[in-house]
Design a protein around this nucleic acid. Structure first.
Lengths: 161, 161
DNA sequence: CCTATTATGGACCTGTGATGTCCATAATAT
DNA sequence: ATATTATGGACATCACAGGTCCATAATAGG
């Protein structure tokens, strides 16, 4: 039950791409140097982000990556779902035996909750919890984190006044 | 980013142990039959639950398992943490390079937020999300799910009227 | 047109952890 | 004494995270 390192890399990479003083197109070299991860591996992650429309990429000299949409339109949930996938965190392994035996113990002939969709009550709780998580991740964006970093006095050195 | 099957088994096993019509000590045979999982494997899970004080076990003839505390004192969070562990879901892989390079780009000499603890802002968001998840899991107990099952008309067959 | 640069995708490798199985041992009731 | 039941160790298997390497394509600059 751990988020992968790829999620960590992806979030930090996007955060870097969102920095105000961006010259267009940040190369993989700069990104991988920043995050202390190999170019090859980070490439895979960036490709995934591109396939899902979070960044744009241009090959060739002076190429690189840039955000495909405004940073405030990229939520943490977007990133997590691209990297970790969109399947739910919990699935009852055998809904037929589980919930049905729990709700209607010994085959009394009634259909077990036919209209409501025979959802496992355990799964229902776990899905509810996941929704709480998603809601929070949806409310936090690349931009909101960047704002907090700026507010804390970061990036002032980057201005080279 | 998936909960393990063990968590599924553990939750359903506890739910079964919490059923009102319990004769003391439910054996591994009955539990494994119910959940359609091998006795050997479920044993490991039950042992873990015992080591963490969620159930009691007695060996020997007529032995088996029973809840170690009232079902309303066993939250989903308790179970998840026993099975999945208690480490946080997200950890910034290199806090020294990450947040520090983001907040104080080019070594300007200031200590980067010394009092506040150099916490990664990305990690902070992810931890916040996890807390939302935990809060929800803390509010749902074995008993609360059992109540909902009863309310839905389950278990009436078990009374053998 | 030629070359250097940069992203892409496929193939491959490795360690770790989830999911089980099997067996010897200990404890308990009859 | 014997049958029953939980426990713990040793293994086996398999998928996946995490990562490397290389051939290919696209692009800019001369």
């Amino acid at each position: 039950m751990q988020y992968s390192k790829s999620t960590d890399y992806a979030l930090h990479a996007l955060l870097h791409l969102a920095r105000p003083e961006l010259r267009n197109n940040v190369g993989i070299k700069e990104l991988s140097g920043m995050l202390e991860v190999s170019e090859s591996y980070l490439s895979k992650i960036m490709s995934k982000l591109r396939q899902d429309g979070l960044v744009r990429a241009v090959p060739g000299a002076n190429g690189g990556y840039e955000l495909a949409r405004p940073a405030e339109d990229i939520s943490f949930l977007d990133v997590v779902q691209v990297i970790e996938g969109r399947q739910q965190m919990f699935e009852c392994s055998n809904s037929r035996s589980r919930q049905h035996r729990l709700l209607a113990e010994e085959e009394d002939g009634r259909e077990p909750a036919p209209s409501r969709g025979s959802e496992c009550l355990v799964e229902k709780v776990m899905n509810g919890a996941e929704q709480q998580l998603h809601q929070y991740l949806r409310e936090h964006t690349i931009q909101s984190v960047l704002d907090e970093a700026l507010q804390r006095g970061g990036f002032q050195a980057a201005k080279k006044r």
